[in-house]
Design a protein around this nucleic acid. Structure first.
Lengths: 136, 136
DNA sequence: GTGGCACCTGGAGCGTGCTCCAGGTCAAGC
DNA sequence: GCTTGACCTGGAGCACGCTCCAGGTGCCAC
């Protein structure tokens, strides 16, 4: 079982040192092991947990909900159903997020096409025309 | 050409009254027309522009960049190439965002499957096993 | 003429999620 | 023995994007 210095943990997980400390402070990480002089030593488990945290963060889960998940995890195996429920809800949220992005992206692409068309026709035709409309 | 009261504009665009005023203040909207007593009357063009703004916001464009886009738009037709470039860059950003979401979503779904498996096997087997690993 | 309502302004405040800072400890290298 | 560098703590500060507030105007209905 490897032990990671804070610097290595930051490197490994992509979180900053400050963020790692912050996450421990708010209880998103349980207290990290310390060496003889009080410096943190992250375990493989910590790094794995941080990987999960990164997934949830990067998919837009608010910290409050990750805290809830962390609590459930700390409470032990009898909360597994709750954790599944939480993750499934989040999975659906991510799905909706993606669908919404795709839809808005379509509108943006239409706008790009509109601009291209404007460039393709002679100046006179688009001079004063209400080009700000469209989209949504 | 319809004129929308602030309330109607809010209704129509999904932005709050405060947000509409805020957007005007910071120059994301050009100054909105006023009626005789100084109340705003949004035009169809304003509503269309707000639709565009909503697209960009909802796909994660920061306000500073929307301001840049608004400026280009105000500067007239000769900035259309720049606007295309800006929107194309954003389109790619959205694409990357979606790809990243899909990838993280995969990890979350694997975690869900993992939990399901844990539920499916007899208690003894998962009692003290490092279940916090995986993900990323 | 009194309420109630929709709106106005400038400016303060807020929630989220970090990020930075001052002042300190230890270990290693020169 | 001194510097450098990685780390420590508690607490303040910050960027972003709104959101709220106090105090006021004008219009309409009763």
């Amino acid at each position: 079982m490897t032990a990671y210095t804070p610097g290595q943990a930051a490197e490994e997980t992509g979180f900053s040192l400050d963020t790692l400390r912050y996450y421990e402070r708010i209880g998103l990480l349980e207290p990290i092991e310390r060496n003889a002089v009080g410096q943190r030593r992250f375990s493989d488990d910590d790094i794995g947990w941080l990987g999960m945290i990164r997934c949830l963060r990067d998919t837009g889960m608010p910290i409050a909900e990750m805290l809830r998940f962390a609590e459930l995890t700390r409470e032990g195996a009898h909360t597994i159903r709750d954790r599944i429920a939480l993750l499934e809800a989040h999975d659906r949220a991510v799905e909706n997020q993606i669908a919404a992005l795709r839809q808005k992206q379509g509108a943006i692409q239409r706008k790009i096409r509109y601009y291209r068309d404007v460039l393709a026709i002679p100046d006179a035709l688009y001079a004063c025309e209400g080009e700000r409309a469209s989209a949504s």
